[in-house]
């Protein structure tokens, strides 16, 4: 696959503050790459470097094989950048705003009218074309931002916290829009704090903390890595307390704690086969309603990874 983003030892310093440290990142064409990290981890700095707004202090960043800094002019037509704020011009209506940026991308004449009509339709903003930009709701502004990035049909979309401060409906609409964009072949680098949504949209994620990339790859891999293999959730039809006591007697079990809907059993060691727990319960006359390894999602994986619990 063709690499759309490639960074090699990418480092950015602001005085003594290290915002990025030797970041090595690869995003392939067609990927929807979720960029996850706490506030101040370096996500926005990475985005800004890729958007040609910042120069790296050290290392190299490439977009579609063009080097940021040396070949920024070639990069700009290839990217669409949505920062973590909405850059609004006063006294412009939606259509003027889009035509303004279309002109900035050297789209003129009838082609400009057509492309503006198309992106308005794609982002479902046609009915707002004559409304002042600064009067739009946050959700609409965010859709307008994305419409702006689509004007010149870029290969890569850099979306920095696009769902921040959006209400649930706007978030869902945005998620659907991004899914549509992915289906039409756009490569997307998106940062967000709302991990379940990233899990829903992205095929790959990167976790960054204190300027260092802790993990990058398919999110299914990280979830798999985050699984401990030591925690088993067991459900019984009745008498959960006595069932937990029964399980706790086993030498392989550290603890068996009754939760609201199940018993959380922690084993001493990772066990590939933990069917002995089920056998013990059935032998004790309990009816099993649930028996599975603990469910791990992106949120859990992120928490464990950033606490150093995953190696």
């Amino acid at each position: 696959m063709t690499l759309v983003i490639k960074t090699v030892n990418l480092t950015k310093r602001y005085g003594s503050l290290v915002a990025l440290s030797n970041l090595n990142l690869e995003v392939e064409e067609g990927d929807c790459f979720g960029f996850i990290g706490p506030n101040g981890a370096g996500k926005s700095t990475t985005m800004k470097i890729l958007a040609t707004l910042l120069q790296p202090t050290w290392g190299e960043a490439r977009v579609c094989d063009f080097v940021v800094g040396y070949q920024s002019r070639q990069i700009r037509p290839l990217i669409g950048y949505v920062p973590d704020y909405f850059g609004a011009y006063e006294d412009m209506v939606v259509r003027e705003y889009l035509e303004f940026f279309a002109a900035a991308y050297n789209i003129h004449g009838t082609a400009r009218n057509k492309v503006v009509d198309d992106v308005l339709q794609l982002t479902d903003l046609s009915y707002k074309h004559d409304s002042p930009v600064d009067g739009l709701s946050r959700g609409m502004k965010q859709r307008l931002s994305i419409a702006r990035t689509l004007l010149h049909d870029p290969k890569l979309l850099l979306l920095d916290e696009p769902a921040g401060n959006l209400d649930p409906r706007a978030r869902i609409e945005l998620r659907e829009l991004l899914k549509t964009l992915r289906t039409i072949g756009k490569t997307i680098l998106i940062s967000s704090h709302i991990l379940p949504e990233l899990q829903d949209m992205c095929n790959k994620v990167g976790i960054i903390e204190q300027g260092e990339l802790k993990y990058a790859g398919p999110w299914t891999d990280i979830v798999r890595k985050a699984r401990t293999g030591k925690i088993i959730n067991v459900g019984v039809a009745h008498n959960a307390t006595s069932a937990a006591a029964l399980l706790a007697q086993d030498a392989a079990v550290v603890s068996a704690v009754v939760k609201e809907h199940f018993i959380e059993v922690t084993l001493h060691e990772v066990a590939d086969d933990f069917s002995f727990l089920a056998a013990k319960l059935i032998a004790g006359g309990y009816k099993l309603t649930l028996f599975r390894e603990e469910e791990v999602n992106l949120e859990t994986a992120f928490m464990r990874l950033t606490k150093g619990m995953v190696q």
Binding site: Y89, D91, M92, V93, E96, E99, A103, H108, D130
Partner: peptide, 21 residues
């Protein structure tokens, strides 16, 4: 709350300075 959009010049920066302001 709405108004007819104006035509944007080929140099959008000049249009912004000269027209919208």
């Amino acid at each position: 709350s709405t108004r007819t959009p104006r035509e944007v010049w080929n140099n959008p920066i000049a249009w912004r300075e000269g027209s919208t302001n």
